[in-house]
Amino acid sequence: MKLQPEPQMPRVWRRESKPHRFCPGCGHPLALKALGEAVDDLDWQDRVVFGCDIGCSLLAWDFFDLDTVQTHHGRTLPVLVGLKRVRPELVPIAYMGDGGAYAIGVQHLVSAAARDEPVCSLVVNNAVYAMTGGQMAPTTLPGQKTETTPYGRDPALSGHPLKGAEMVAAVAAPEAYVARGSVANLRQLKRYLLRALQNPHFSLVEVLASCPTNWRTNAAETWEWVEKEMPRYFPLGELKGGVREEERR
């Protein structure tokens, strides 16, 4: 399908795979737009290797005109760690959901951060397992209804939501860059992504993102939730500043 006139897209987006496959109102394409613009700004199309995971993130397997590898369960990170170890000139981006990064593959995230692997992780936090039909995620908020917490997440029963960015910031090297942005503030998100990509150490950007399909929310409620509700538990901002350009010289 060819849209006329063609909407404005980052150069690095692959035209042939658009329109994309994400649900209407999904936060992924916004995060991928900010990422695409950041790669465009750096003009790094020949250096960036994109890795995506299982779940909704895998829908991005042919999203970019970038060499891409798709895997699952947060293993995107060790794949890119292996790649970076032998091809230091490449800039690998591990694009994962909160389930892959903070639950089933959390050991990879913690260990890559602790070892200060120079890989950029981009974790989309939409507070649910979306592709599998809306189960509780490590990031599901207290009281939030999901298919496996039909009466709302009860912290006494299933614990509190995991603050992944804070956890990573606690174990990462002093030079690491860790930030939490949101699809509700794309300018800020892009700024974080640019810093993350340019940081020659480990970096993590968590992105608060919407999932109206599984949240069962209308447009106004969706935006309210991602913009107001989520940051009350997951505060936005930079947790670790990385190495700034002026310090690197």
């Binding site: 590898v69 895997t71 293993r75 060790p78 794949v79 890119l80 760690v81 292996g82 790649l83 970076k84 170890r85 032998v86 091809r87 490449l90 050991q107 990879h108 260990s111």
Partner: peptide
Amino acid sequence: LSAGYATIGAVLGG
């Protein structure tokens, strides 16, 4: 898991 997948990553790198 990481050992296997990192081996894959290095192989992907050539």
